[in-house]
């Protein structure tokens, strides 16, 4: 699946998107997998209450299942308007 990062999440991880080969069942599982990779991921995901997630470009939750999902995006709370 493609994993996208925006705003300070993108800056902390250092890339805007990447392709991730994962069997994670839920978003939270994927976060745990990524966090275990390297310090920059652990830092970006240290407080998931400060993050939002979209699955296939729809806002979702960290306990949502990832089955069939092609695009996961992590970002801080939005500041539009």
């Amino acid at each position: 699946m493609d994993v996208l990062y925006f705003a300070w999440v993108r800056e902390r991880i250092g890339i805007p998107r990447e392709s991730v080969d994962s069997q994670a069942a839920t978003v939270a599982d994927l976060v745990a997998e990524l966090s275990a990779r390297e310090e920059r991921y652990a830092l970006a995901f240290s407080d998931i209450s400060a993050l939002r997630v979209a699955l296939d470009q729809e806002l979702s939750d960290f306990d949502a299942p990832l089955a069939g999902v092609r695009e996961v995006a992590f970002f801080p709370p939005m500041t539009g308007g």
């Binding site: 925006f6 705003a7 300070w8 979209a54 806002l59 995006a73 970002f75 801080p76 709370p77 939005m78 500041t79 539009g80 308007g81």
Partner: peptide, 21 residues
């Protein structure tokens, strides 16, 4: 403000900062 995926960053003389929701 809080459901459209935009993120604002303020660029000043002393650096840049993301606007917090």
């Amino acid at each position: 403000k809080s459901r459209a995926p935009f993120w604002k960053k303020e660029i000043g003389a002393d650096g840049a900062e993301w606007v917090a929701a």
